[in-house]
Amino acid sequence: MLRVGMVGVGVMGTAHLEGWAATPARIVGYVALDEQRAQAMAQKYGGRVYDSLDEMLPDVDVVDICTPTYLHREMTLQAAAAGKHVICEKPLSLTVSGAQEMIDACERAGVHLLVGHVVRFFNEYALAKATVDSGEIGRVAVTRLKRVNFQPRHAADNWFLDPAKSGGMILDLMIHDFDYARWVAGEVESVFARSVRTVDPNAAGDYCLAILRHKNGALTHVEGGWVYPPPMFLTGFEIAGERGLIEHPAGSSVPVGVHLMESQLRDLPAVGVPAAPLAESPYVTEIKHFYDVLTGAIETPRVTARDGLEAVKIGLAVIRSAQTGRSVRIEEVA
């Protein structure tokens, strides 16, 4: 019986818990800043609340880290030192060296390090990737990826808005599409980007337009932002290949329309998470996959720790490009 310890019970932690509940794994413990919320989760999913990660480690086989990004490195090292598998939310770390340290520690300890690049588990993204891999549209030429939502709005400690804690919008949000671009079109060679907050940290919103050049000559355009009026969250993609085109325009696959006379803004979530009515949420699919990897049913995870590291590199290169106004090669941030 795989024993799971949750660290963090925020938006992502909650999504992961739903996933674990759909596996044979047992959720044995929680460590969280918000103890009240952790208690509520324990009520719902079983297990108990621990005072610290150290205290919880002896009782678990895998630690699921859904904490703010700046805590990922330290917690992963701690878990690896105890010989525990790690599931870590994206981005893997705020720095290349941090991510590398995490990978090395998990390798030395002989434990898995699985990164929550959940977009790879979204049906539409996985289907497009499979379509590209089938050769149906030939060699990928120009890909366009879009992910724009509203600014995260936590009542207290809005760590998302502190670049020292989250890496900012580029590292926190756009990293999904950096990972996807690399998955679909191959290794990235260089990037060029312009963004609002990298040059004006006090701007009300954040928006970035990035161009990636892949080693095989393919190009990817990535649009990201915490800038839309709440509760709007749009994602979309377009993949143009030598022999065909895949389109998934933003907002085009919303199957249910709800239009009310009175605004329901009071139910606004703290952080935008794209939603689609499916029999199984992508977060559940992701956790089920991780479960299969951890129990040996699947040998190679759909997203590796190195994928997580490479996405961080692209993100940091994009930030540096936006700061310096020049093209940045990936090696420069390695």
Partner: peptide, 13 residues
């Protein structure tokens, strides 16, 4: 005031 561009020739090769 500033222009950056990337091009390729994969489509319609």
């Amino acid at each position: 005031v500033e222009v950056f561009a990337e091009t390729n020739a994969i489509l319609y090769a």
